[in-house]
């Protein structure tokens, strides 16, 4: 299912949550949605899941408006941290309910995952630890096999080994049951290898949408002698830099020409890839582009 947003905006009372956001998501890809707290990630995902309407602009999934669209809603799962404190039903009844409302739900797979996460099927949900409740959420998302599966920080309660299981399952699912997955996260350094494409939003606006390959080519570091680095980065988009003794490491954003690469080699400068986490931090800092931090 193709997702197309054209200048969509959402305003809560006096606060603009999303402003003129436009993007296209292709079917079958895994997208990383990255943004700081309050950037508008959950609002954007709420629109995709038909939890709310856009105030302006046009949102289309498979050529149709997803709001109150029974066909689309049955194929979109929005998984987020849920408050289960009043839920006394056992885990198995959540699987029953999912099986009833998600036509592609794979119960055998869900039970296999429950075993991997050491989640007892008879346990009342309100008695589960936060990590186990998160595991239940991601199991429902993974085994539901909806055409669009959205995970909004659904894994933040899980410990590192459980998150690792989840990441491996994302990769397996991508291979065996390709579908559009959107992973919204703060754990950028941990999850960047999962993304085919990355969307960074900041203050309700789209800052960047690039494939993982493009980011590897365009988010770069240049390390070397201070003067050489300064000379090299003149005219380039510098996101920030660090100095240690006579050595400087500058973070740059943009493609390097062949001339630049030759100049770097001649000056003994080392060109590296800027990790997505660093790029995200640099791009969303209140004042970026200045030297030294």
């Amino acid at each position: 299912m193709n997702i197309k947003a054209d200048r969509i905006s959402v305003t809560y009372k006096n606060t603009t949550a999303l402003h003129d956001l436009s993007f296209t998501l292709e079917p079958g890809k895994t997208y990383g949605l990255v943004g700081r707290n309050g950037a508008g990630k959950t609002t954007l995902l709420s629109l995709l899941a038909s939890f709310r309407k856009t105030d302006s602009g046009r949102l289309e999934i498979d050529g149709e408006n997803p709001f109150e669209n029974a066909r689309l809603m049955s194929e979109i799962a929005f998984i987020y941290e849920t408050d289960y404190s009043d839920e006394h039903e056992p885990v198995s009844s959540y699987f029953d309910f999912t099986a009833r409302y998600r036509k592609n739900f794979d119960r055998a797979y869900a039970e296999k995952l429950a075993k991997k996460f050491s989640l007892g099927l008879d346990q009342p949900v309100h008695k589960l630890s936060k990590g186990m409740q998160s595991a239940l959420n991601v199991i429902i998302g993974l085994a539901g096999r909806t055409e669009i599966t959205i995970f909004d920080e659904a894994y933040s309660g899980m410990d590192a080994p459980a998150r690792e299981i989840f990441y491996r399952e994302i990769i397996n699912e991508k291979e065996k049951h390709p579908r559009t997955m959107i992973l919204s996260t703060h754990l950028v350094s941990e999850m960047d290898y999962l993304f085919d494409e990355v969307i960074i939003i900041h203050k309700g606006q789209l800052l960047l949408q690039k494939t993982a390959d493009e980011l590897n080519e365009q988010g770069l570091t240049v390390t070397g002698n201070i003067e050489d680095v300064d000379r090299f980065t003149e005219g380039l988009s510098v996101l920030g830099s660090e100095t240690l003794g006579g050595t400087k490491r500058a973070k740059i954003y943009g493609s390097l020409s062949q001339d630049h690469l030759e100049q770097a080699a001649a000056s003994g400068l080392e060109i590296g890839t800027l990790p997505l986490q660093d790029l995200f931090i640099s791009l969303t800092e209140e004042e970026h582009g200045h030297e030294d931090s």
């Binding site: 029974a70 999912t98 409302y101 998600r102 909806t146």
Partner: peptide, 11 residues
């Protein structure tokens, strides 16, 4: 809960 599982408000 029901909307989360794909049921429209109307239904």
């Amino acid at each position: 809960h029901f909307v989360k599982y794909g049921v429209t408000r109307k239904n």
